Simulated scan of single mutants.
Amino acid sequence: MSEFHFLQPLDVLYLRGNRLFGDSTASGEAIMPPWPSMAAGAIRSQLLASHGVDSGQFAQGNAALSGGLAQSLGTPDQPGDFRISHFLLAKSQACEGATPTSRPAEQVQVYLPLPADVVVLAENGSKQVHYLQPQRLPAVIQTSAPCQQIPVLRTAKQAKPAGGLWLNSAGIQAWLNGQAIDSSHLVESKSLWKIDSRLGIALDAQGRTTEEGQLYTVETVALAEDLGFLTGAAGAENLLPANGVLRLGGDGRGAQHTRIEWQSPQPDWAAIAQSKRFRLLLTTPGLFKQGWLLPGMTAENGGYRWKTHEFSARLVTASTARAETISGWDIASNQPKPALRAVSTGSVYWFDQFEGEVSTLQKLVEQSLFSIDAYPDRKRRAEGFNSILIGAWRS
């Protein structure tokens, strides 16, 4: 089970990726949505602080944990049961009678970047939303696609795709059920956050004096009012205080965290069981041993089949965004984390010929794809990568 907390920044956030600064006056770009590892580090540090454990001593292996905290966090080299299960941009809408320190009746609006199978076309000032659908191409058309079908956009006329759009809670539910998505389900990113550029200068590590010619600009993210991050933490039940302040993102900017009640949206599982087909959506970057292929996929009859000890399904096709590189800084060892290629958030996979119980898919959503394969390691598992949603696939 996951315990949910709403993380609301008290200042702008430094959400840098893994690109180094180049020449003088170089600019550091912010990434949105940020990697879930940001929340993992913040919440684990808060767990240690709330139990009187020095995080620096823990990172060096000099702090002995006990009881539930030891089972949750383990050690820096061998993490315990703790795992970020959900990490979504969200808006807090407190109900009447709620207080800043106790908000049990919290209502949360969550947002996701457009799934890769959703295309929004701008036509005459309006937005038309279309689903990509797998299509088998005529034999005369040759492609390098690894699947026999490819995702195809079918429209009456050409139009320019609109970018910078996210789905709100109603839009996410519509996607899960395979229902039509309309303009009321779309939110422009500019209404969720703004980019605020900050000027800085490098300092000499010993003398703490400024370095000549080392000016740089960093993009910070200023979230809109009441915006924050809905974060689900598994393996840490009743260990975190109900509310408090923690350090979030680069430069350790402050953020308030508050425990909330929230139910993850569910698809029409009965429709999936009846049709024997479904779509899979990555809600955080996917770290897979076989590149873009999900863990457990094997080549079969000119295509791919997804097999575990509990279910199997045939991969029809996939729509994956450009791969990204995930890294970070390992505080315990004071060195960069290994850089790994990742399948981007929002990538979609279509499956049919499903064999097994639908409950196994439900469990997969709850436990993430790490429940199939531990690649690359338990550290990345704890950081919340490989999280998914499963939705119905309707024609």
Results as ranks from 00 to 15, higher is better:
residue 50 S to K: 05
residue 51 H to F: 12
residue 51 H to P: 09
residue 52 G to V: 05
residue 52 G to Q: 14
residue 52 G to E: 10
residue 53 V to C: 08
residue 53 V to D: 01
residue 53 V to Y: 02
residue 54 D to H: 08
residue 54 D to W: 04
residue 55 S to G: 00
residue 55 S to P: 13
residue 55 S to L: 06
residue 57 Q to T: 05
residue 57 Q to V: 04
residue 57 Q to E: 09
residue 58 F to W: 11
residue 58 F to L: 13
residue 59 A to H: 15
residue 60 Q to D: 02
residue 60 Q to F: 02
residue 60 Q to C: 00
residue 61 G to E: 01
residue 62 N to V: 02
residue 62 N to A: 05
residue 63 A to Q: 02
residue 63 A to Y: 01
residue 63 A to K: 01
residue 65 L to S: 07
residue 66 S to G: 07
residue 66 S to P: 01
residue 68 G to C: 09
residue 68 G to W: 07
residue 68 G to V: 14
residue 69 L to E: 12
residue 71 Q to M: 06
residue 71 Q to T: 06
residue 73 L to Q: 15
residue 73 L to Y: 06
residue 73 L to N: 15
residue 74 G to K: 03
residue 74 G to N: 02
residue 74 G to V: 00
residue 76 P to E: 00
residue 76 P to V: 00
residue 76 P to N: 00
residue 77 D to P: 03
residue 79 P to H: 15
residue 79 P to I: 11
residue 81 D to P: 01
residue 81 D to A: 04
residue 82 F to G: 02
residue 82 F to L: 04
residue 82 F to M: 07
residue 84 I to W: 04
residue 84 I to G: 08
residue 85 S to T: 10
residue 85 S to P: 02
residue 85 S to R: 03
residue 86 H to I: 06
residue 87 F to P: 09
residue 87 F to G: 06
residue 87 F to V: 10
residue 89 L to F: 14
residue 91 K to W: 13
residue 92 S to W: 09
residue 93 Q to A: 11
residue 93 Q to V: 15
residue 94 A to E: 14
residue 94 A to L: 11
residue 94 A to C: 10
residue 97 G to K: 09
residue 98 A to M: 09
residue 99 T to M: 10
residue 100 P to T: 13
residue 101 T to Y: 06
residue 103 R to L: 05
residue 103 R to K: 03
residue 103 R to F: 00
residue 104 P to R: 08
residue 105 A to P: 00
residue 105 A to V: 00
residue 106 E to G: 07
residue 106 E to F: 01
residue 107 Q to G: 06
residue 107 Q to M: 09
residue 107 Q to V: 12
residue 108 V to G: 09
residue 108 V to N: 10
residue 109 Q to G: 13
residue 109 Q to C: 11
residue 109 Q to A: 11
residue 110 V to C: 15
residue 111 Y to A: 14
residue 111 Y to V: 11
residue 111 Y to E: 12
residue 111 Y to F: 12
residue 112 L to G: 02
residue 112 L to M: 11
residue 114 L to W: 04
residue 114 L to Y: 05
residue 115 P to T: 03
residue 116 A to H: 08
residue 116 A to N: 13
